[in-house]
Amino acid sequence: MNDISHSPSAAKATATKAPPEVPQESAAVPKMRAEKVSVHYADKQALFDVDLDVPENQVISLIGPSGCGKSTFLRCLNRMNDTIDIARVSGHITLDGENIYDKALDVVELRARVGMVFQKPNPFPKSIFENVAYGPRIHGLASAKRDLEEIVATSLQRAGLFNEVKDRLDEPGTGLSGGQQQRLCIARAIAVNPEVILMDEPCSALDPIATAKVEELIDELRENYTIVIVTHSMQQAARVSQRTAMFHLGYLVEEGPTDMMFTNPTDKRTQDYITGRFG
């Protein structure tokens, strides 16, 4: 385990070598920080003592072969693992310094602050408008109908979907194409104005053109949001993220600036993975 650069200091050290477009100061203050996070599904351990910082207003991608625990880790960040009866999470995860597994913290509030986009586009069987308005409605973010309409419009605009759907907001969201559906789900997530957006392989069910659009969108969203994205495509990680973390068999193998990871990985397993020996 010596070769795993999992200490926060090591992460910080590598962060200073990040590409120039990364705001340096925000990297120093991580938006979210995970310390010694382990997850058990019943008797089986799926995640082992993961330490990872999520820097603010950057995109960090989690890569690794399937079953490596990257999605499990992602679901820890907004406590989606709570919905699985047999899952047990230990360790510390903080959001702006607050422990999100603290009893005093409300999971509803947490999820309002840490939104999530899923692997398969999962629009609700409602109209496009209602899909986007769902979050603001349940959280009571808009008192007047006009406010709600504005939130929906901005969210759709930010998700780059507005122009495509503005004339058919009352049609069912399930009627859109796969790529549009996924952007609708992203619009739905940002309608609550979260601080962090978690994306679980958001493009795995999409064709290349739709994927390109979503990737473009992710890049734009970085301005306002902190994004954690799970992907099995290294090209995608290289395209959209500033930092990359490599998972293998439940361990965090290596973490660092994306270009470093792809050009000069320190760990043999990362090397093997990105050169396609396994995965």
């Binding site: 203050v29 310094g97 509803v108 959280h139 973010l141 601080e195």
Partner: peptide
């Protein structure tokens, strides 16, 4: 690191957080 550190994020976020928090009690009930 306190919550005020996030002030660098846009102001509406705080407003919204307030709105979310205000509704929590009712929603949990």
């Amino acid at each position: 690191m306190s919550a005020t550190d996030t002030a660098s994020a846009s102001a509406p976020v705080d407003n919204q957080l307030g709105a979310v928090r205000a509704g929590l009690k009712r929603r949990h009930a």
